[in-house]
Design a protein around this nucleic acid. Sequence first.
DNA 1: CCCTCCGGGACGTTTTTTGTCCCTGCGGCC
DNA 2: GGCCGCAGGGACAAAAAACGTCCCGGAGGG
Lengths: 349, 349
Amino acid sequence: MDVVELSAVRRIVPELVETLQTRVQILHRIRLMQPVGRRALAAAMGITERVLRAEVEFLRRQGLLVFHPAGMSLSEPGYALLDQLEDVLAAVEGRSELAQRLSRVLRIPRVTVVQGDSDQESWVKDTLGLQAALLLREALTDGDVLAVTGGTTMSAVAEMMPSKGPWIAVKVVPARGGLGENVDIQSNTIAARLAKRLGGTSIMLHVPDQMSPETLEHLSSEPLVQERLQEVREATVIVHGIGDALTMARRRQLSREEQAVLRERGAVAEAFGYFFNEEGTPVHAMTTVGLRLEDLGQLRLVMAVAGGGSKARAIAAAAKGYRVDVLVTDEGAARGVLGMAREMDEEGS
Amino acid sequence: MDVVELSAVRRIVPELVETLQTRVQILHRIRLMQPVGRRALAAAMGITERVLRAEVEFLRRQGLLVFHPAGMSLSEPGYALLDQLEDVLAAVEGRSELAQRLSRVLRIPRVTVVQGDSDQESWVKDTLGLQAALLLREALTDGDVLAVTGGTTMSAVAEMMPSKGPWIAVKVVPARGGLGENVDIQSNTIAARLAKRLGGTSIMLHVPDQMSPETLEHLSSEPLVQERLQEVREATVIVHGIGDALTMARRRQLSREEQAVLRERGAVAEAFGYFFNEEGTPVHAMTTVGLRLEDLGQLRLVMAVAGGGSKARAIAAAAKGYRVDVLVTDEGAARGVLGMAREMDEEGS
DNA sequence: CCCTCCGGGACGTTTTTTGTCCCTGCGGCC
DNA sequence: GGCCGCAGGGACAAAAAACGTCCCGGAGGG
């Protein structure tokens, strides 16, 4: 495999780097939106139809795209090439380096940074989900038990999981019981969708929202629930989102009093029902059943997926709170985290 | 140092890989011809003045060129960048791989292949010389004794040796005595020129062409000659050209009888006064004094410089005949040698 | 069955690229 | 020291490429 030093090339053909970026971007967006038409795609990318047309015609001549009456899609070689080019682009845009720094700062072995900021461009969350889905698919093997959480990000992961490819005999389980989310982004729903696309099975864990601790205790002793819980605790891999504490508190419809408590205890992050403060200490837990914080140590792989500048604090806190093996995030969050780390360095020195 | 996988890039931005080539080519030619004007350069490269002008204006804006009333030259950063880009271009054009294969086939540890064919474009020989000169300059250290041969290729090496840079205290000696060449390309002349550019000293070894063996013997026993020979045999590094046997025989004005003998014995290569057959066996030696074939083993570094498709056979033969540590050649010769090797493989199989 | 959005074709306009001059002036050769 | 040649820079019309914009027949989905 021939490799080429980058900065010198950039110096002598800067336009190469730029067209490379736009073309890869186009392939990428097509992958997300396919099948998609010229006009829709041009509008989504903020370029005019004509120039996009020139590019896609080129890409088709290269055999990377196929044109249907329903829209454009990636061809098989298109998928393959895009996979390689994503890495190239990550290097070109400096996201590789970003990931490396993040890895060191957060002490997470493997970090992937996708382009953009989920807060600002909606498609970035899809990219995030796609990237996580691809990494996940690689990591899973037959017999794995995959625990998943809810949230919009995890929903994107399920949505973007390619259903082609060999089926994997996994059991997908919700990491925790009902957490008061919209049904589309509940862990139960997501587990089901993921299982379908992976070719495995899923189970559900239905418990009502907002129970009293006593009810919870009764419920937990139910044989059926016990059985389900047993299955959940056998998880070998978990994929989960990370949220901003207060945002999640509101979405989960916590009472004003509880929200006040969270604020008072300095909660900044939420993940699978636990709230963490800036130091990563758990300061509160939702009253529900499922995978517990102390179970994480048993897992083979803990993957976190979260992006957007607004989640930077939460990601940093969560990374301190428990073990994360793989983090998939975006530029917005990555720069946010590194910015925070830099500030703290400056204070410290 | 960020590196980037090449073939994928080539697939998605082929035009820009081409402009990369032309721009590097331009820098390269300017380095060879500087100071040079637009028109002369455009004519030499076979492109129109206007398009060359666009390119050099770009390169100047990038700070890689400086414009004088006398013509264009490389700036300091221009030199530095070109050095990096030569490697990039070698990879892009597949010359890296060519060199690697050549290295394996000829059993020469280090091989460099420059672009073009010396037989077809005259400037390629300059490139060859430049490349060899640069490698040589790197390899030499104070106190080295450098032996050189004659020939047009070696003349190019001397001509292209940069005279800037730190001076090196080397002694440059002709590898062998007079070999009946034109004075410009005699080893004595070349030794003197190289010494001047490197900042060292040189000695001459003047013996008449075409002596009888008896005269040679007498001459060799002369104290002054003895002394010089002593100095030559103390050489630590040798740089030499390789020639086609019959061409060299004619140029050295060997008699018809001698030429017939060479032909009969299947001589295909000539190097520092020795003729070799296809298997690399020396079949004849010029009657002169200096470094002998058996002295090569003592040297720290044996560098060969030869290019052009017509020299492929000679290079292959020479590589079998004696030890070569570094070979600098061109595409024409490289493809020729590999073509021969392939044929032999097919016969053998 | 209809309606929307698809790819492909077309075309005038704008922008960029290209070929071809000329001019002034420095530098090297005589 | 003077002269000649080639240097870079400026200019400009012609050619080519890129671009914005619209239209059309048709396939797919509701």
